[in-house]
């Protein structure tokens, strides 16, 4: 015998709903109009979930809490060809689609057009959770530009974070150039993908709090000089020592990167600190064995 939750007083139902994980709330909301309204009305609205959308192959949407300290998948949109036999059907944003539950207890829906599916499940979950805006975008290669364009146009609030994650991924030069010119992000931009060897970017890097470039062989001194971030991690750079010295001089003289507070540049090969710090070493104060620069 089941347990009739709608026969319980509303405060108890609220307590039960508050103890359901976000993915379970989505399943509960899909049971009926009444259950949908119950989730909308009774869920805990004080929790600041971050709405994370990962379009592409095995597209899914999830909630993160505290920058991913807690992660909870909401649902996914997959290719109709991946649908198991005898799937049941569910109605999402006017579409009747097959669905199943995977081994990790994630709800998967199956679509003829995965892009459309991704948009539909995102809109469904956004509405369910009080028109929550997408907070973080984690696209794969093929979904990069359309998903960026779609998310940017669907909401007024700018995206907080974009992560092009996966160290082995490559990206076409034209596509990457367009991405760097179009992307608008307020907090964190992480780029792990590798553009073609001859790629250079002639524009300005997007303005954001933290920029993290893992395969930075394409980064030029001009990109660095025009960068506007608070924290920058540049890994795998091919900048010459003289260029890094040029940047450090300009930075300390207040001629570039006015908001920058922390910079990490990793290059391949060996270099002596004296070469980097030529002409600026005298501005450093030795404090507890650490050279500290003030400007």
């Amino acid at each position: 015998m089941g347990l009739p939750v709608f026969s319980l007083p509303q405060l108890i139902l609220q307590e039960i709903i508050r103890q359901l994980l976000p993915g379970e709330l989505v399943c509960f909301s899909l049971c009926s109009r009444k259950s949908y309204n119950a989730v909308r009305l009774l869920r805990n609205k004080n929790i600041k979930w971050e709405f994370v959308v990962s379009p592409g192959t095995s597209a899914r949407i999830s909630f993160w809490f505290n920058e991913g300290y807690i992660k909870s998948n909401l649902m996914g949109a997959d290719d109709i060809f991946d649908a198991p036999r005898n799937c049941q059907i569910i109605k999402i944003k006017g579409n009747s689609v097959p669905y199943s539950m995977d081994w990790y207890h994630n709800l998967r829906t199956f679509w003829d057009d995965e892009k459309h599916g991704m948009r539909a499940i995102t809109e469904y979950c956004s509405e369910l959770f009080d028109n929550m805006d997408v907070h973080t975008l984690l696209p794969d290669g093929p979904s990069l530009l359309w998903s960026l364009n779609w998310v940017t146009n669907r909401q007024v609030t700018p995206l907080e974070n974009i992560q092009l994650s996966g160290d082995t991924r490559e990206i076409g030069g034209r596509e990457f150039d367009r991405f760097l010119r179009e992307v608008k992000v307020t907090n964190d931009l992480t780029i792990c993908w590798k553009p073609p060897p001859n790629f250079t970017f002639t524009g300005r890097l997007p303005r954001c709090q933290n920029i993290n470039i893992r395969k930075a062989s394409w980064l030029t001194i001009d990109n660095l000089l025009t960068m506007d971030s608070v924290v920058a991690h540049i890994i795998g750079s091919r900048l010459r020592i003289s260029q890094i010295n040029q940047f450090l001089r300009a930075w300390l003289n207040g001629q570039c990167a006015p908001r920058l507070k922390f910079l990490e540049i990793r290059i391949t090969g060996v270099a002596m600190a004296n070469q980097y710090l030529e002409g600026i070493r005298e501005r450093a104060v030795l404090e507890d064995g650490i050279l500290t620069f003030y400007w």
């Binding site: 089941g2 347990l3 039960i16 379970e24 399943c27 509960f28 539950m101």
Partner: peptide, 19 residues
């Protein structure tokens, strides 16, 4: 009661919670 929802599809949830 919330744990009863673990891994359940909407159709199964209807039965578990008599929705």
């Amino acid at each position: 009661v919330a744990n009863m929802a673990q891994g359940k599809t909407p159709a199964q949830l209807r039965r578990v919670y008599l929705l």
